[in-house]
């Protein structure tokens, strides 16, 4: 409703201009015909598509055209005229434009999925180019490290060479 109130103050401009021209009675009919010819340029059936592109003067002309249309019996209005009246007053333009146009949700979801997929491909590609792991990361090497530590009695109080030690020592592989 707010936009209608914002839009309406433009409308009184025309009656003011009309009263000015009415004093010079010779120009009154010319002004009236000019306004009717300019408003006839914009078909009401297509207002929804081109409303954003219309200049303020053309929008004012449409407003006035619709005001006249709505004074008629509403049963006699066409659906296009009704839709135009509704769209101009309460349609999704100006302050009522939605923050996110329809279809934004799926777009964001697909873009997120695509981003994750690209990251996965990049990860796999870099991993495939990597050198093999060092020879010390293997079960045999770790068990040999355990034996050597026991030979040398390494860490005899709490560690691998202590009495009753139950840990795995250097073995990290299952």
């Amino acid at each position: 409703m707010q936009a209608l109130r914002l839009a309406r103050p433009r409308a009184p401009l025309r009656p003011y201009a009309r009263s000015l021209t009415a004093t010079a009675s010779g120009h009154a009919s010319a002004a009236a015909s000019a306004s009717s010819s300019s408003s006839a340029v914009i078909p009401l059936s297509n207002v929804e598509a081109q409303w954003e592109q219309l200049s303020p003067d053309e929008q004012l002309a449409v407003h006035q055209q619709l005001e006249e249309v709505q004074k008629k019996d509403w049963n006699s209005l066409s659906v296009d005229e009704k839709k135009a009246a509704y769209y101009v007053a309460f349609g999704p333009h100006g302050p009522r434009r939605p923050d996110n146009p329809p279809g934004t949700g799926p777009k964001i979801f697909l873009a997120t999925v695509a981003g994750i997929a690209v990251a996965g491909v990049l990860f796999a590609a870099i991993r495939s180019q990597a050198p093999p792991p060092p020879k010390t990361i293997s079960k045999e090497w770790e068990e040999a490290s355990n034996q050597r530590a026991l030979e040398q009695k390494a860490n005899p109080i709490t560690g691998i060479s202590s009495e009753g030690y139950s840990g795995k020592g250097f073995v990290t592989h299952k």
Binding site: L4, Q70, K71, W74, L77, K82, A85, Y86, A89
Partner: peptide
């Protein structure tokens, strides 16, 4: 709404 000749407001009431 009919008295003030505003069709759009009549539709908006139902909304």
């Amino acid at each position: 709404a009919r008295r003030v000749n505003d069709y759009a407001t009549a539709v908006r009431i139902f909304e």
